[in-house]
Design a protein around this nucleic acid. Structure first.
Lengths: 342, 342
DNA sequence: AAGAATGAGTGAAACGTTTCATTCATATGA
DNA sequence: TCATATGAATGAAACGTTTCACTCATTCTT
């Protein structure tokens, strides 16, 4: 790596002071046209690039916003990231996207990385149910916004989707299709989203006058396609098999579908399926998947905007808010009773 | 944002010099056990976090590696990112994943961001066919490795998959299944990968003694599901419809499948499909998709390792290399002739 | 024509680390 | 006992910016 050219080199070559070079870069109208051109020419010739770390050191904060999601393998979070990135870039900030993989330990590691980087702020979907990671992160006074999760206190903003409503939508639909015994394929138990969707499902059952036992829990190790396949295999082994499955996300649903397909079980004939997230691939599945759509892009963008509002708030008039968006049921063939074709 | 506590505050509170505090953090064995404990206690109490920007300014380079991919919406690149991240973190580096969206302009923007950040190095799949972006990036003397693309000269490393071989695998398989008229659904024309897969396809035709005209080009605007749907619609409108389709990636293939499904065209009965990448969702498609598998994880990891080898090379004995991995055909039902069931 | 206002540019301080040549005290060897 | 080696801690320089109080001409105002 050849010697980096600094602002001093530019200044010397252009015959001006470093302050002037800095002005050319940051407040071009404070410098005469003539010198501006001269300095810019030298910058060009020398291939000068300003050092973000020096700039940042001086400024005390960076121009990067962090986004910590549960699983980048899930297209849902990719969309969240897209939304956040769009909003952040509109404000001249970069976004650093990281993946906690639902591990509290990874989450902690990334949070301290963010603290060291003095990021402008953090958007995150917490992986640590205990809230201890967040607790200790607060010490650093770096603002953050919860994504896909409601803030517990009023110490921060959050943008989420009403998971209880989503669960209700899904199960109400299955009940309307005539199902009376439904399995809930959930991920690992500690995620609030998963619990809320289940609550929503129970609410739908109650509405219909059915007992909670009508919902059969089928927990899994993870929230991915492989876990879904595994759940499918277990489902097939059950003695009293339900007639419908509500999966906590689309990856699980797709895995379930694969397992059923491989075992020759017809969907929705023998078993109806409803997923969650409505990722792009849900429509392209073996049997196009009914799913609960979440406004992922919007969620990412709103979270970023709330964060920007908080960090750019000189007047101290920012009030933390909890935005809750509504999900929407997208009905496709995986859940439609044969007798009522669509 | 409360006043950040710095190394000086720690030093004062602990009654030692800043140099000593720095030693406690970076070379703990150079300091007596007693002072070490005392200093660590103060660090803990004050919640001190070192400033990466100051550290970096001093060191002259950052501990971050950048990865610039064509499309984070494509699970293939998500896997590449996973592989790279694993390797980088093993070496204590963070990875900053960015998305050029196949736009040369976005690519240029990100590259200059990376230069400002003084990243340790860059892994990228070029979006700019002209090579002008790379050309000008070279000025900064930041090492980079090409991913999924063969280096033109010998000025950098590259890790790629043999796309010509992949194209041949796909089409040779279709020919063996009895097809004589094949469409190639390509993305926008400027990507080398797309061109190479086409060359491979032509080679397979030549092998079988068929003229190049047996391959019908069906270009698209993008390399995503929507573009695939669109291509499907166009395919259905053709007067002399081919009996098989080779799609330049799985997203296109899934879109194609959706379009055909919607139009009631049976796959593989009326039309066989082969995709490319073998993303996880290929197996879960309406008809499980035959696809050319690429070792994405390996590619990401190897690229990161090559970069590390180059940047950590004190002795100047690093030699740029071009690693070419081999693809593999994964046959599923979307391409199997009915008469020969599997 | 004297004083004030404006415009362009300067130079040094400050940001928070790491590193390195020193210092100082104590332990070691002859 | 003296010189030397060792170990622990110090203090200042350096990294590359931005910012801000200044200086020095030049142009307005009256």
């Amino acid at each position: 790596m050849a010697q980096m050219v600094g602002i001093k080199d530019v200044a010397r070559q252009a015959g001006v002071s470093v302050g002037t070079v800095s002005n050319v870069i940051n407040r071009p109208d404070m410098v005469s046209e003539e010198t501006r051109f001269r300095v810019q020419a030298v910058i060009e010739r020398l291939g000068y690039v300003r050092s973000e770390s020096a700039r940042q050191l001086r400024a005390g904060r960076s121009r990067i916003m962090a986004l910590l999601v549960l699983d980048m393998g899930n297209p849902f979070f990719v969309d969240v990231a897209r939304g956040a990135e769009r909003a952040a870039r509109a404000a001249g900030l970069g976004v650093m996207v990281c993946n906690s993989g639902q591990s509290a330990a990874e989450e902690a590691e990334y949070l301290s990385l963010f603290a060291e980087q003095r990021v402008r702020g953090v958007l995150l979907t917490p992986a640590d149910a205990s809230g201890r990671n967040l607790e200790s992160f607060r010490r650093h006074h770096i603002p953050f916004v919860l994504v896909d999760r409601v803030a517990a206190g009023s110490a921060e903003c959050s943008v989420s989707v009403d998971d209880v409503a989503g669960g209700t939508l899904a199960v109400r639909h299955l009940l309307a299709e005539g199902h009376r015994s439904i399995a809930y394929v959930s991920g690992p138990g500690h995620l609030q989203q998963i619990k809320d969707r289940r609550l929503g499902a129970l609410a739908a059952l109650a509405e219909a006058g059915l007992p909670p036992e009508a919902l059969q829990d089928l927990p899994t190790e993870g929230l991915n396609v492989a876990a879904g396949r595994d759940a499918g295999a277990r489902l097939l082994g059950l003695t009293s098999r339900p007639t419908a499955v509500f999966c906590a996300n689309d990856l699980l649903a797709l895995g379930m579908l694969q397992a059923l397909y491989a075992a020759g079980v017809s969907v929705p004939g023998e078993l109806a399926i409803v997923g969650y997230d409505d990722i792009e691939f849900a429509a392209a599945a073996a049997v196009p998947l009914t799913s609960v759509r979440q406004p992922a892009l919007t969620m990412g963008a709103m979270a970023a905007e709330l964060l920007l509002e908080e960090t750019d708030d000189e007047a101290g008039k920012h009030r933390h808010q909890r935005v809750v968006l509504q999900p929407e049921l997208v009905v496709r063939s995986s859940s439609l009773s044969q007798r009522r074709p669509s």
